[in-house]
Design a protein around this nucleic acid. Structure first.
Lengths: 151, 151
DNA sequence: TATTGTTATACTCTATAACTATA
DNA sequence: TATAGTTATAGAGTATAACAATA
């Protein structure tokens, strides 16, 4: 029963069920987490994408929408309605960039800063619930392993 | 600077960027993995869901579609077209269950078994590419951590 | 020529409600 | 009353192409 360098052999491959694929594990976990996040914010005007967009604007005041898209892996076309909504809710404001008339600099309003703070607190509760079975070291391990995959 | 039981404090919460949320890390990894999976099977009639459905049928010959949905977390309505396609491609066959006329027992055809074997080999290549930066121990750690989240 | 913000559009995935036939 | 398979449909998320304004 010869094993190759990666450690598989033919019979193991044949017997490998879907749960044996790491990608499946990541997917199932992601779905559970996303659903709990959405449920956590059910009565608030917050979706995973708008939460992450607001968070990036908070981290980098004056950031452009194109830059947010590069950071978060979004399409430029798909962030338009997200920003429109955040602006209409009074959480985000835009100013022209004198140095480059194409870009709009984005900032959180005072209400946006307050809202994001409360959203983050709620998101932390959500994370503590979802990752309750992982202690602090395990959460750090998971974080480190996941960053190796996508970053 | 008082810390609560969970180990956060107000200033840490304020400074926590989106990358500090584990759920975000899981999501980004999941997207990268799904996209690579889809690209890996671009010229084949295989999607993540149809791959997992075929795999479950292979593991449990005679399984019903409702049971597959419970195992994979799908809606019954959404598996119909998946099974139709797998059947039209000649990879799945259905037989009535004499003991319960409501259910259809599902099996892979010989062509389905062959196809699934090649799909799994291809999926393993995909996984070895995606998880290249994780050694065997790290992959086992990741698997163990993810199972704690969703199962 | 490249980039920003935008519009329009299409496609996939997922969720819900309702129906039938069976149990 | 509950379940299996199905249909129809709606919604969210994401992708592509094109455009005007600007660099």
């Amino acid at each position: 029963m010869a094993h190759d360098q990666a450690g598989e052999c033919v019979d193991e491959l044949r017997a490998l069920s879907i749960e044996g694929f790491l990608g499946y594990q990541v997917r199932r976990a992601s779905v559970v987490i996303m659903n709990d996040f959405i449920e956590t914010f059910a009565e608030l005007p917050v979706r995973p994408v708008s939460f992450s967009v607001a968070s990036v604007i908070d981290d980098r005041p004056g950031v452009s929408s194109a830059e947010i898209c590069r950071i978060l892996g979004l399409q430029r076309a798909n962030i338009v309605s997200v920003l429109e909504k955040l602006q209409s809710e009074g959480f985000v404001r835009r100013t022209e960039a004198p140095s480059d008339m194409r870009v709009q600099r984005l900032y959180l309003t005072e209400a946006g800063v307050d809202a994001l703070r409360s959203w983050k607190a709620r998101a932390m509760e959500h994370e503590n619930r979802i990752f309750a079975r992982l202690d602090r070291d395990e959460r750090k391990q998971l974080d480190s392993l996941l960053r190796k995959i996508w970053s």
